[in-house]
Simulated scan of single mutants.
Amino acid sequence: MRKIKLKIEYDGTNYHGWQIQKNANSVQETIEKAIYKLLGDKTGIVGCSRTDVGVHAYGQVAHFVTDSSIPGEKFSYAINNLLPEDIVIKHSEEVQEDFHSRYSAKGKKYRYLIYNEAHASAIMRNRTYHVRPELDFENMKRAARYFTGQHDFAAFQATGGQVRSTVREIFSIELLRKEDNLISIEVSGSGFLYNMVRIIAGTLVYVGMGKIEADEIPDIIESADRTRAGKTAPAEGLYLMEIYY
């Protein structure tokens, strides 16, 4: 048997998240069906990150096991011929037997996009979080620096998260003001709690609105109190960018 690694890009708008769901279309199920058409085997794929409904990805990673003789690098071409246009296998390769898309990961990088404009965007409506009031970008940048390092991020975990520890390390967080009134938040870390990046984004929006002071962030982290952080920003602004191995 051989193990094949996939790097996957997808627009999550039309899917009920990555993971297979009952009576709902998911990215994982769509790819598994394509592999079944290709190989004739009901092969399960294992993804690194269980992205939520509406979340997008440039760098999701998954693996599957097969006895097919197709060269590893050719799987991307073969599977893409059987996928809808909003899911693309960007790269495929054969990897060592001990590789695991989830458990071998050393960290992840996410991007969150905010469309800061009085009027919503027809084109970006499923790809950004629309915020009408003008945000104080410099204050948001000042607040962001407090998130770096290793902390207990219990205040930034949504209800429903099931983990042994809420301690995580953020390697870096960078805010960029882009063209067309876009604000990008890029966060890299060892791992993330349930909705953690979306809550960080929502908290930084509150800072930009003046609802939370930038210097309050350390106290909010220390409090481990979810009610003190900002709201969970919408899923459509979130992108899984890269998995580190």
Score class of each variant (00 low, 15 high):
residue 47 G to I: 08
residue 48 C to V: 08
residue 48 C to S: 10
residue 48 C to H: 09
residue 49 S to M: 07
residue 50 R to I: 13
residue 50 R to G: 01
residue 51 T to C: 09
residue 51 T to F: 11
residue 53 V to E: 13
residue 54 G to S: 07
residue 55 V to E: 01
residue 56 H to D: 03
residue 58 Y to D: 06
residue 60 Q to E: 06
residue 61 V to D: 00
residue 61 V to L: 10
residue 62 A to H: 01
residue 62 A to L: 02
residue 62 A to G: 00
residue 63 H to I: 02
residue 64 F to E: 00
residue 67 D to F: 14
residue 68 S to C: 02
residue 70 I to L: 10
residue 70 I to Q: 08
residue 70 I to T: 04
residue 70 I to E: 01
residue 71 P to H: 09
residue 72 G to L: 01
residue 73 E to L: 13
residue 73 E to R: 08
residue 73 E to V: 06
residue 74 K to G: 05
residue 74 K to R: 14
residue 75 F to G: 00
residue 76 S to A: 10
residue 76 S to Q: 03
residue 78 A to Q: 05
residue 78 A to D: 04
residue 79 I to K: 01
residue 79 I to W: 01
residue 80 N to C: 06
residue 80 N to T: 00
residue 81 N to A: 15
residue 82 L to V: 06
residue 82 L to Q: 09
residue 83 L to G: 01
residue 84 P to Y: 02
residue 86 D to M: 04
residue 88 V to F: 12
residue 88 V to Q: 14
residue 89 I to W: 05
residue 90 K to E: 10
residue 91 H to N: 14
residue 91 H to K: 15
residue 92 S to C: 04
residue 93 E to N: 10
residue 94 E to F: 11
residue 95 V to N: 08
residue 95 V to P: 06
residue 96 Q to Y: 15
residue 96 Q to V: 15
residue 97 E to D: 11
residue 98 D to T: 11
residue 99 F to H: 04
residue 100 H to E: 10
residue 101 S to T: 06
residue 102 R to K: 05
residue 103 Y to H: 11
residue 103 Y to E: 05
residue 103 Y to T: 09
residue 105 A to R: 09
residue 107 G to K: 01
residue 107 G to W: 01
residue 108 K to R: 04
residue 108 K to V: 01
residue 109 K to N: 08
residue 109 K to Q: 07
residue 109 K to A: 08
residue 110 Y to N: 00
residue 111 R to V: 03
residue 112 Y to K: 00
residue 112 Y to P: 00
residue 114 I to Y: 01
residue 114 I to A: 00
residue 115 Y to M: 03
residue 115 Y to I: 06
residue 117 E to S: 13
residue 117 E to W: 12
residue 119 H to K: 15
residue 120 A to C: 13
residue 122 A to R: 15
residue 123 I to M: 11
residue 123 I to Q: 05
residue 123 I to F: 09
residue 124 M to F: 10
residue 125 R to C: 08
residue 125 R to N: 08
residue 126 N to Y: 13
residue 129 Y to M: 05
residue 130 H to K: 08
residue 131 V to W: 08
residue 131 V to N: 02
residue 131 V to Y: 04
residue 131 V to K: 04
residue 131 V to I: 08
residue 132 R to W: 12
residue 132 R to K: 14
residue 132 R to M: 14
residue 133 P to V: 02
residue 133 P to N: 00
residue 133 P to Q: 03
residue 135 L to G: 07
residue 138 E to S: 13
residue 138 E to V: 11
residue 138 E to Y: 15
residue 140 M to P: 03
residue 140 M to Q: 07
residue 140 M to V: 06
residue 141 K to L: 08
residue 141 K to H: 10
residue 142 R to A: 13
residue 142 R to K: 12
residue 142 R to H: 14
residue 143 A to V: 09
residue 144 A to C: 07
residue 144 A to V: 07
residue 145 R to W: 14
residue 145 R to C: 13
residue 145 R to T: 13
residue 148 T to M: 15
residue 148 T to Q: 09
residue 149 G to K: 11
residue 149 G to E: 06
residue 150 Q to T: 15
residue 151 H to F: 08
residue 151 H to T: 01
residue 153 F to L: 03
residue 154 A to P: 13
